[in-house]
Design a protein around this nucleic acid. Sequence first.
DNA 1: TTCTGTGGCCGTGGGG
DNA 2: CCCCACGGCCACGGCT
Length: 569
Amino acid sequence: MNAKTLLDADYITRNERAVIRLFYKDKGIRTVKEIDDFEPYFYAVPDDIDELENEIKNLNKILGTERLEMTDLNKKVAVLKLILNHPKDVPEVREQVKNLENCKEIREADIPFTRRYIIDSGLVPMEDAEDAGLNVCAFDIESYNPHGDCRADRDPILMISYADSKGMEKVITYRTESNKNLIKDMNLDPGVFEFLNNEKEVIQRFIALIREREIDIITSYNGDNFDFPYIRDRSGKYGIKLDLGIDGSEIRSERRGMNLGVKVKGRPHVDMFPVCRQAFNFPRYTLEDVYEGIFGETKPDIEARNIHEYWDSGDAKKFKKLLIYSLSDVTATLRIAETMLPLQYELSRTVRETIYEGSRMSSGQRVEQLLVENAREKKILVPNRPSDSVAKARSRTSYVGGFVVTPKKGIHDNIVLFDFRSLYPSVIISHNIDPSTVNCECCREDKEKYIAPTGQWFCKKNRGFIPEILNKLIAKRVAIKKKLKAETDEDMKKLFDVQQQAVKLIANSFYGYLAFARARWYSKDCAEATTAWGRKYIHKAVDEAEKFGFEVVYGDTDSVFVVLREEGE
DNA sequence: TTCTGTGGCCGTGGGG
DNA sequence: CCCCACGGCCACGGCT
């Protein structure tokens, strides 16, 4: 309860200026810090910097310019930093500047304002979250579905279940003609099961609970695309504002790829469905399957499509089953959240992203975020995102094949799995694999360079940006593991373990990032060189293993399965 | 209120 | 005429 942690950040407009708001939990108290002296900016790469500066003088909404020398891949370039008054002006101004005669291209004009602030200020969201006494809750709704699928314009919410990290559990529902005579005979704990008069009261009670319990993190299972939109739509019907934000603002849905994300201001909503889908490799990701996959236990379940029957049945046993099912869904969600959040906190801290964003990021986005942050320190110009057509063309190009060993048929005992994904970071570091060092002019005639099996060479004179960051990450992991070994306190051990896991996850994603078609720092040459060297070392390891009587039964880009053959077998 | 997924299939059209 | 590069379109999976 003694620490201060940054939960969320946004900006508002005051007197036509953007004001950043930082939502903290500080020694158990909510605080908001406002920053009113940070201005949006981006860079223009000129053909002729004097001419460009002249052209820009004719544009409105630019507060000022600054000449800077920055690095673009392996070249030094003079750029103009354009400082604006308000982030909303960026899209318009960047189009104008892009079209100026002396502007070659614009850079870093697509980094959202609050993210830019967090990067530039060095803030670490979720720092010390474990000591901030965060109140976490989970919620889940059941809705009426006599027509099969339920639709918020037609079918009411039947109950909202709630559970929080301080031990409160609730199923909030309402009396109807079919259940009113059952309730008193059901022997339910009135502290858990609340029967109100109607759906509207249920929603109001839910909102009140989030506020009264001073919830800091709201978790759900698919709340992004089901529960929150559903409650919001039903609230609208009754004229209730779903104002769960710490500042009294309503929840907001935003597009994130093909799905939605639901944002609650200052009280981050973390949806466990996308988190689990990314963290585990299960055939299905229903709450039931994920719960069983993680904990090895089944939970009480009823067929979702029959919920309306349980509600309408007028049968005490059936109705109770529905209540218990609803409660079990929310306690399962909370348990999953409590298991998954520590790593999510750490991943967010590692890439310095709010937990709302961090918990919804792909591994590629995490790597990219880390690179963008480090680029600033090193005065490196961040490459632009590829256009759709460039990304599509990239993903169409074929790659030199990975390491493949045709599976040996049969059932094998004593299988040992060698995972080579963890090999790639050291391959990248030790051969200085980077978009700025590949086939560099400075080493063209030089014998002293790293030459990949695929023919590309990598600079030995200048350290690449990506290998440097990766090296820092690996060093960080070694240091954490050292601390973990020496630690005796169980809580601290868990924290260190999560820290090293987060670093490992991100470090192991660098190779995939280089091959990722939408990456700013995409490099086919680098990706191919990495796997080619990787294959070389795998073959070496396999040959060694075979000398000692092991046999490779299956292999792919990432791993090799080896068995030990007995003498004479 | 600067940012928006990804991969596969299929029809089209231009170049060899 | 064939091939392939390109762009448009669709589905994916979870909640009830």
